[in-house]
Amino acid sequence: MGNLHSVASALEHVGAAEVVVGHEPQAILDADRVVFPGVGGIRDCMEAIRRLGCDQLLDQVLNVDRKPVLAICVGMQALMSHSEENGGVACLDVLPGQVTFFGEAHQSDGGERLKVPHMGWNAVRPTKGHPLWHGIEPNTRFYFVHSYHVVPDSEAIVAGTFDYGLKGCAALAQENLFATQFHPEKSHTAGLTLLKNFLDWDGTCS
């Protein structure tokens, strides 16, 4: 889905030896680490994931091979149990939780009108120490663009939050999986730092 090349360019920029873009099973199984990006609507995205067998590959990579995995934006949303988008779509249920709409007439706590999509640079507050946050100060701004946001069943997997009329989930972390709602590949130096951290990550949370 969508613009996979920007993620590849950004990873190459921070020193990835080789980035393969695609859904070729062997390439994914041969990789040292896997990025699961996504833009666009969730229905098309999930349809493609299932049609191409990426759901099974992801399971293999995450749970059997235990490689470091980074999911981005719709990639993160696809990991949840269910999304409200496109009239309701069952997702991968890798991380239990829902993907919900910001809502019509979305407002800040102070009653200020907030546009949807949530588009632009928002401050991210890491809520737990994690190797992917290395060198990134609290409240560093990352680039977001989304109308739906993730609500995990368990607070324990939340790795970072943003404020946009609600406390939104900016990042999730569970074992060898890290997921961001923002686009590190479009977030200038902060995003490149996170991607570099991902390349250096051994997949453990210590």
Binding site: L114, G120, N139
Partner: peptide, 8 residues
Amino acid sequence: MMTLAKRI
């Protein structure tokens, strides 16, 4: 308050 930034 930290929220969405206006863009240039």
